[in-house]
Design a protein around this nucleic acid. Structure first.
Lengths: 148, 148
DNA sequence: CATACAATAGATGATTTTATCTATTGAGTC
DNA sequence: GACTCAATAGATAAAATCATCTATTGTATG
């Protein structure tokens, strides 16, 4: 079984955003609560949230009653933005084959294959948004949700 | 520009294999030579080569005149095998959302999206083989290759 | 069989990533 | 305005990854 691996920071960013997106009430969610819900170390999470805030994907509110909430509607937050905001892109198109210069004009032996994979990845990241996170009931249908 | 990131070990494995695949003469290639050609630290490379040997993707020959050569024909070595052999799979389908149990029956909110991406990834990894590495001239057409 | 070559193995070190801890700043409530 | 809540910031620590160094084992050649 092969599966992609994101680094923790990116994985956490995705996880936190998905969690925020599933929040029903429109009251902001505190870092502490989010940390608990996502099982992400609180202070580590805070640093990630900061990045997401800076990217405009999340709004933050200090002080009593404050917390985090989405900065845009679900469907306007593609995973791509979350990946980028979380700092996923540290090695901008680094050549797997090790060539300093590697592009369509001077492609390394792996270039074409590599591009194919990345195109698929990029397509996914652009197409999928936080809207796609809803799709399963998060809790059992009969549970008691406090009325909005 | 978003692009996938493999860890170094995996990237190196891919790179080394691609390099071996492009070798014209059928004499084995020493770790030293391969290290130089791929710009991978020699002893680090050796450890990776060991894994590839164990997986049967590479044959190794000790002693004078020895070195590494492909263990199978190019087209029988899909990238998938290289990834797996290099140890890419450390977290067997870890749930991005952090759920211990996460599968089609009990899918986390990110599951479907995640599966979609991974399917694309797996398809790529299975489809592409070392044969796809040939496709560009490695050296200028008119260069002097020693006769086989 | 002595020598040089070359893979294998194990120990050690550097760097990066991940995680934690301790303030500090900002905002609402009594 | 004192108090509590909660994000922000920075320093520090733990762990994993990446890299190097030093033997050791195995193989061909003079």
């Amino acid at each position: 079984m092969l599966s992609l691996k994101f680094n923790r920071t990116t994985e956490y960013a995705l996880r936190a955003m998905a969690n925020l997106a599933l929040q029903r009430h429109d009251r902001p969610m505190t870092a502490k609560a989010l940390s608990k819900a996502t099982d992400i170390p609180q202070h580590y999470l805070s640093k990630i949230m900061k990045k997401l805030v800076e990217a405009g994907l999340v709004m933050s509110q200090k002080g009593h009653g404050g917390g985090f909430s989405l900065g845009k509607p679900n469907n306007e937050i593609p995973f791509l933005d979350i990946l980028v905001a979380s700092g996923y892109e540290s090695h901008p198109n680094r050549c797997v084959y090790g060539w300093g210069e590697c592009n369509n004009e001077a492609p390394c032996p792996l270039h074409d294959s590599w591009v194919e994979l990345n195109d698929a990845f990029k397509e996914w990241a652009m197409k999928k948004t936080l809207m796609d996170v809803r799709g399963h009931p998060v809790q059992a249908p009969g549970d008691a949700t406090e009325g909005v």
